[in-house]
Write a protein that binds this DNA or RNA. Structure first.
Lengths: 150, 150
DNA sequence: TATTGTTATACTCTATAACTATA
DNA sequence: TATAGTTATAGAGTATAACAATA
């Protein structure tokens, strides 16, 4: 017992601290869940939004997910070069790029979703259905539309 | 109604996604709360652990917070150069550095804590006391000691 | 004028490997 | 051998400013 106890002092009652730690636990588990797929949390989120809203603009995706325009560029490039999304000039607005998932993108999304879902069940194995629903509800009430990028 | 609706597709039922978004909301608010203090989430967390466990080693702080040895170095340097923590060779183990908060460090911790506490009350203004306690409990059950750094 | 996508850039966070000095 | 701190380094994530093309 050489080690000091790990009391976290004033961090204990702070919701922000515990959100950060819990979020990190899920982030690590996400990485393990999609190991070998070359996917990351951001890419998965973008792919999910594109698949749900085919034809959506690059900027709109960023606005939904809280990613800045400037940072969307290389992320979309990654998904495009991996053959997971297609992009073409929006006929209604020639400045904009219209994004759609490819067949490979849809397959990747479904594969990853199933892996992640299974992993989340593991992390939440001690949770009742009510507790999980309660957690999602409480988190949803925190996510009041935060600042739009830019 | 030029903009597509922002439905997030398969992200909706994933706890990890909502943890990440909620965590970001709190991180932004943290930054606004401590504006002008030169403090950041990591530095505040380290300061809190050092203040709660005076004499604790650099590596032990990292273990409590999930920060790797290599990354602790510059963080402790920042706190030291800001005059918030003092460090001296541990008499019992001459490899280790024993950390204690300075008077300025204790004052900074208390000032920041009060600011953050006030801000968290704002973010959680729609939460009942029971709901906040429930959220902390559920998050605590996720933070099962995650992987020790290194 | 405002907006879409883009480039360039910088800072923070996180990760690995290798070194030193102690244990 | 193992551990504490350190250095160097690299990859993500995130931030701002400025530009061209289009609205």
């Amino acid at each position: 017992m050489a080690e000091l106890p790990n009391s976290i002092g004033v961090l204990a009652p702070l919701v922000g601290y515990h959100l950060r730690r819990a979020s990190t636990v899920f982030a690590f588990d996400f990485a393990r869940a999609v190991d070998g797929t070359n996917m990351r949390q951001v890419l998965f989120a973008i792919l999910a939004v594109v698949a749900e809203n085919p034809g959506i603009n690059q900027g709109a995706v960023g606005r939904v997910l809280g990613i800045k325009r400037a940072n969307m560029v290389s992320l979309i490039n990654e998904l495009f070069q991996a053959g997971l999304v297609a992009r073409e000039a929006d006929p209604g607005d020639r400045r904009a790029l219209s994004l759609t998932p490819t067949a490979a993108g849809t397959a990747m999304l479904q594969d990853c979703y199933q892996r992640i879902e299974r992993h989340e069940q593991g992390l939440l194995s001690s949770f009742t259905a009510d507790e999980k629903a309660m957690l999602l509800d409480l988190l949803g009430r925190i996510e009041r539309r935060d600042l739009i990028p830019d």
